[in-house]
Design a protein around this nucleic acid. Structure first.
Lengths: 152, 152
DNA sequence: ATTGAAAATAAGCCCTA
DNA sequence: TAGGGCTTATTTTCAAT
């Protein structure tokens, strides 16, 4: 279902779930002062209409030992872009790969346990891929705002 | 609890939950061939140790009518950075704000319903903030890989 | 699309090893 | 830390509006 129009109730439910996807129907029912079955019906519709794509746990990379989080801007030779994307996406450190409109560029997020691992990844892995012109690297040093529910 | 060491069981549980945070203990119990109570104990530990920070629904912005997703690189005058961060973070379109190591730069993700709204945001909102030198903009035109569970 | 109630599942708690 | 059993809570189904 595309372009499913959300009303205020849907928005309120989404808002609460974005805070905590584990709220029970009963809790939402009380908070929004609506019957449990109505809440359930709405959520099911949000899921079926693909407004809600799924549910995930938020994992803090730092508590898993991944100290280094990089943003990579990869300039790519146009005709190799699909190939570059495929190779990059398969590396475990890359968590997100986007195509952007400026130049034939890829915007990549990747996480590593140590600096050393990151540099090794860039020089040994990335620069070995045919079709990559250049890689600009930024390290994330501060998280000011995170709204993980919305997919870019 | 910091630096909680994860064993293979923890990793397997995480892996399954990252695919779907709504798997019941019973389902995980069968998949991993372990008692429900053990699965429960492990997940609770992952939560208490802050490896799992919470649970969120994944929301597809496009199905909410947000067609435009921008990556903004904001060059900031060092002494104003906290102020800039506070102002930017309060705007509803900004979903993520990171500080990066290159220059006094902020890396911002923002979503908009239309192009017009995005340009208006940049010219009327961003450039009115004291302390911003320049804003480089990229529009996301393709999502190749998304791993939303891992926080950057 | 909304609701209430019953039935089926699952989570939470406590105790033991 | 792992496991089992009992109690409560939650989800699911279904019929009626």
């Amino acid at each position: 279902m595309q372009d499913y129009k959300l009303d205020e109730v849907d928005m309120k439910i989404l808002e609460r779930l974005r805070y905590n996807a584990k709220f029970t129907l009963t809790v939402l029912s009380k908070e929004l002062d609506m019957p449990v079955s109505t809440i359930r019906y709405r959520i099911k519709k949000l899921e079926e209409s693909k407004v809600i794509l799924g549910y995930v746990p938020l994992i803090d990379r730092t508590n898993l030992g991944y100290k280094v989080s990089l943003i990579l801007e990869i300039d790519t030779i146009p005709k190799y872009i699909e190939r570059v994307v495929n190779e990059i996406s398969q590396f475990p450190p890359t968590v997100r790969v986007y195509g952007v409109d400026s130049g034939p560029k890829l915007h990549v997020h990747a996480i590593f346990k140590e600096e050393e691992e990151a540099y090794s990844f860039i020089s040994h892995r990335l620069y070995n891929i045919k079709g990559i012109n250049s890689v600009e690297t930024s390290k994330i040093i501060r998280r000011y705002k995170i709204d993980p529910s919305i997919l870019l």
